[in-house]
Structure formats: C-alpha cells, structure tokens
Design a protein around this nucleic acid. Structure first.
Length: 569
RNA sequence: CGGGGUGUAGCUCAGCCUGGUAGAGCACUACGUUCGGGACGUAUAGGUCGCAGGUUCAAAUCCUGUCACCCCGACCA
C-alpha cells in the first residue's frame, strides 16, 4: 500500500472521551471512530487488523473441523420465548417490533437460532457430532458501554455451537475447542490464560474463560502457584479453615462505637484486627424479604456465589437502608448476626472465629467477645467470599495469586439446556429419539484487537504482535520527492516485497521523516526500513524493529531475505 | 437507573463568572523556504457556539427545558 493513497488519519491529541490506552491508541492510530455510545466504525487500517484476527480464528476453527455458516442478526422473539430467555435475559436484550408489530431482538448470542437450525437439519446420530460457527455482529445493550471496542454494544464475535449424541461426545468436542482456542491465542502472539468460569446468562455446567493478561483488565483471575488450578474470581473456591475453632475466652460485651460504621473505622476505634471482626450484609431475598450474609471483616462478598444461595435474589442486590432498618431495627453500620431472625448465611472463615466483634443491631453499638454456639446459634457455614492472595488453592497444591485479565474467549458445555427446551433431538442407533447435547464457544473478535493493544504498547503507540499487524513492514524513504536514487530504491523494494507476498506499506507521502516515523510507531508496524541517500551511497539500508531503540544497517541487496528472516521469528 | 461532569472549527481547548463584531494550537488548501524524529512563513478555507424556548436594545455567556456524550456508582454493616 502506498500511504500517499491511503487514509492515514492519525491524531496527535488524545480524544477527550477515551479512558483506556487501547481506546486512545485505536482512535489516534485511525483504526476506529465512534458513531454513538458503544458503536464504532472500523476505518481501513483498523479493519486490516480485525481481518487478520478473523483469519486466524477461521483457520483454526476450520482445522478443528467446525463448519462456518452465517445467521441473521435480527431474530424473532418466538425463539427466545421458547427457550425461556425472553423473560430472563433482561434489558441487555435489544427488543423491537417490525411494521406488523411482530417482536424481534437484535441477537446478543445465537443459541436459539442455531438450535432451531439443528432441530430442522439434524435427524440422525450419524450426523453427529457437528460444530457450526459464524463470525457475526452481536448487540448487547450494556448499561454503560465503555473503553471503546473493549465493551461496546455492537461488536464482532465468533460464536460456535456443537451438537452431540451424549455427554462423552460433548466433553470430547469441548476439549477440541479448548485446544483450538489455545492455538488461536498462541498464534496471535498474546499472553493468555484459561480459567474456570461461571456460566452466567448463557448457562451450562462446565465452562472456561480465556483471558488476555493485562493490568487494565476488568476481570480478576485467580491461579495457583503450584498445580494447574486457575479460575475466574467469580468461581474461585475458598476452603474452610482447617482445625477446630479456637475456644471462647472472652465474655460478650456491648461497647459504644460512635461513628464507627465501616470495618476500617471500627478496627481503628477499637484497636482490633479486621480479621477478628464480622461484617453482616443485608441483601434482597427472592421472596421480598431480606437475607443476612456474614463475612469476616477483611473479606469481600462474592456476588456470584451469594446469588446462587436459596432464598437470595438473583442477580444479587444489596438491601436498601430502609429495609435494613425494618429487619434489624438498626441503621446499616451497626448490624450484626446476634439476635437476627430470618435467613442467614455465614462464610466459613467468619464461622471459624471466636471472640469476634460484630454489630449489635443498635445504632453506634457493637459487641466484643462474641462466640458462635454461646451467644448465637452455631452456624451452618458456606463459601460466599472472594478469594484473597495467599489463600490455599482449592485443588490442594500451592497458594492463590490474583492477576487482571481481559476475557476474550469463553467455552461452555451447555448440556441439554437449549435442546431440551426447544426439542432438538435425533434418532439414536436403536431408533430412539435422543435430545442432543450442546456446547458453545465464543471469541470476542473486536475485543481481541483492543486486548492485544492493552498488552502491547509503549509511549509511542501500538506494538503489534506480528500476526495482527495491519502492515508487517513499512518502507520510509527520506526525500522521496527529491532524490531519484531514493525513489528508485524505495519503489523497487516496495514491488519486490509485494511480489514476495509481504504486507508492506510504502510511506511515499510528501512529509518530513519525523512525521513518518511517528506515524509508523503509533500505528505499530513491526518492521521499519529507512531508505535515505546517507546510507544508500554505501549500498545500505537501515532496519529497525518496533521494539528496538537502535537501527542496524543492512545491505540493500539483502533486504528482502533479511525481512523474510525477521518475519519467521 | 442514581450521582457528577462536558457540549464552541476535523482534533485538543480558551472565551462564559462580569452579556456588546467568535478565538488559539494542531490538522486541511495554495505558494515559498525547509527536509534523518511530529518544520517555518505568507495567504486561504472551515463554526446557525448541541437543540428549543425565555430574559434583554443585545445571549457562546444569564434562566428553563431537552438531547447527546463522558466519568463514578452494592462489598456499608
């Protein structure tokens, strides 16, 4: 591509509404432009990278035996009613009516449509297993779209769905997708990690997420220092403390704790460790009541675990201050488990405490020296907290560490969730109708692009992993318009590189060298060759990798071979 | 949805408090001088100051409404 004929619309200033680095750089490099909240156009240079991501995904899906198809983004409401998700999916599902007042949705995911296809097209166990995939736009009406294409409302996703005669075949198909995903993200040159995950609104029993590791990631992922345990924070299990609970040594006492409403204020006021305190949170119950959840003072509630408890509203909501007063007779800030009636859940760690501090359900008053079994009933404890760094791994080996990740892929074993609701069955060997087992497998194609940038950039701009770069090589002639020697050499190299199948850009713009260098670095082209009279006189060129701080001279005659060699690594 | 903030040229922003001819830098166009790390000069071009009402002799500026966008938002017991 000759850049004089290519819309290089780089920006020097950072657009004011871009928060994260990938969003800023994508705007500055001219990859994307915002159309409305959560809606982005992809400009040519951005689309080049997006297409490279798509291509890797397509090649690996095809290699894994999946079959590409394409489904409409607009889907009839009837299918969603049939799967029972019309009522469950919530406001994130964009719903609208056509001119005949028929109801439709803009698809956020495609289980319903693919299951409809499967039940129409698949008749026999002989046609199984089968895996269909597409790379298609999705729309999720996020409450708050942000971070550019990282959390956009309309986005491009690869979604695949497999169909199986039994659970064993599903497990096998799932494994094949796991391997394919590992290949995909490895080929893209990304540092990533697969972790256990929650099924969320898609459902299913077994699921894993693929996270690109980046400090700016929205998700906390947990992994063990030993063994291969890795999980999303949402599902990472905590173990009950080992050994018996210490014996009670203190008597229960009420202490005035004026204006000490948070654990931090309470520990400062009383001079106790937060590990010796218990905090009681009131959440909305599923029957219009409230439910108490009790945690050790230094622990955090895990919403995903809590909302699965019987009697707790799903999704989890904190009870209003008004309802807390009704249930406890006290304001938030001074409530505790002693004397509480109604449903109460206690975390393992809180249940293991003796002589603890807790709210007294009386404004500005707490108890000290509280003990389970003596001052309040012995609790049945559960795991309802987030893991903390240093917690023992639930798999038995090592301790847990926490890192930040960007979820770019998610694979699920759905089982018969959708096929049952939508009656997708085939005949088995014995002529008996069997409901199919399903798996589903997604990759956020547009998000991968942003995640790659979050992981690979410096002060000057993007540093593309080779396989995702919009151009692999940029030729920067100095004085192209004036020096015939430079122009001939640059044109020649450009033609040779193109003929060799290298994705090369020739920066033949009538601009000063500094402008060209700055743009090449901002856009993130991995390899740069400078063609100038200075070195050309000696039959040399200057080569520099995007990550290097110094250039090296290479013979003009060897340029193609040299670059080919670089591209291999 | 609740709270906060911002809408002025393609981008970044000043001007608003204290009403009086709409500005700067970058980008764009032409010419000239430059030409190895985001050049300089000259001359152009580009804005119904988000939109709609209101107050006023006069509104980017004050008031009301509205729209758009951005940020924050249970872990407090």
């Amino acid at each position: 591509m000759r850049l004089s004929q290519y819309p290089i619309s780089t920006l020097r200033d950072v657009p004011a509404d871009a928060e994260v680095i990938s969003h800023q750089l994508m705007l500055r490099a001219g990859m994307i432009r915002r159309l409305a909240a959560g809606l982005y156009s992809w400009l040519p240079i951005g689309l080049k990278t997006l297409k490279k991501v798509e291509r890797i995904i397509r090649e690996e899906m095809d290699r894994a035996g999946a079959l590409e198809l394409c489904m409409p983004t607009v889907q009839p409401a009837e299918l969603w009613k049939e799967s029972n998700r019309w009522g469950k999916y919530g406001p994130e599902l964009l719903r609208f009516k056509d001119r005949h007042l028929r109801e439709f949705v803009y698809g956020p995911t495609f289980e319903e449509v693919i299951t409809d296809i499967a039940r129409r097209e698949l008749r026999s166990y002989k046609q199984l297993p089968v895996n269909f995939y597409q790379i298609q736009s999705k729309f999720r009406d996020e409450i708050r779209p942000r971070f550019g294409v990282m959390r956009a409302r309309e986005f491009l996703m690869k979604d695949a769905y497999s169909f199986h005669i039994d659970q064993a075949s599903l497990a096998q198909g799932y494994r094949i997708m796991y391997d394919a995903y590992t290949r995909i993200f490895s080929r893209m040159g990304l540092r990533f990690r697969a972790v256990q995950a929650d099924g969320g609104s898609i459902g299913g029993d077994v699921s894993q997420e693929f996270h690109v590791l980046a400090d700016s990631g929205e998700d906390a992922i947990v992994f063990s220092t030993a063994g291969d345990y890795a999980s999303n924070m949402e599902t990472a299990a905590t173990l009950a403390p080992s050994g018996p609970r210490p014996a009670a040594t203190q008597t229960l006492a009420k202490v005035a704790t004026p204006n000490a409403h948070t654990i931090a204020e309470l520990t400062a006021f009383l001079g106790v460790d937060s590990k010796q305190c218990v905090k009681t949170l009131m959440v909305d119950g599923s029957d219009g009541d409230v439910v108490a959840v009790v945690l050790r003072g230094d622990h955090e509630l895990n919403a995903v675990k809590a909302q699965k408890l019987p009697g707790v509203a799903n999704p989890l909501r904190m009870a209003s201050a008004e309802r807390v007063r009704q249930a406890t007779g006290s304001d938030p800030g001074s409530i505790g488990p002693i004397g509480l009636t109604g449903r109460i859940y206690v975390d393992h760690a809180a249940a293991h405490l003796a002589d603890f501090v807790c709210g007294a359900n009386e404004k500005d008053v707490h108890f000290t020296g509280a003990n389970w079994g003596r001052d309040l009933p012995e609790p049945a404890s559960q795991d309802i907290r987030n893991v903390q760094p240093g917690d023992p791994s639930p798999a038995g080996k090592g301790t847990l560490e926490i890192a930040r990740g960007i979820e770019v892929g998610h694979i699920f074993q759905l089982g018969q969730l959708y096929s049952e609701a939508m009656h997708a069955a085939v005949l088995d060997e014995g002529g008996k109708s069997v409901t199919m087992f399903m798996g589903c497998y997604g990759i956020g194609v547009t998000r991968v692009v942003a995640a790659a940038i979050e992981q690979n950039h410096d002060a000057n701009g993007i540093i593309w992993p080779e396989p995702l770069a919009p151009f692999n090589v940029v030729l920067v002639p100095i004085n192209y318009q004036k020096s015939e020697q430079v122009r001939l050499a640059a044109d020649r190299l450009y033609e040779d590189f193109k003929a060799a199948g290298i994705d090369v850009a020739l920066d033949d713009r009538d601009a000063r060298p500094g402008v060209k260098f700055a743009d090449a670095e901002l856009i993130g082209i991995p390899h740069r060759i400078v063609i100038g009279d200075r070195t050309l006189a000696g039959g040399k060129l200057e080569y520099r990798h995007r990550r290097a701080s110094e250039s090296t001279e290479i013979p003009l005659a060897d340029a193609l071979a040299y670059i080919r060699d670089q591209l291999k690594h």
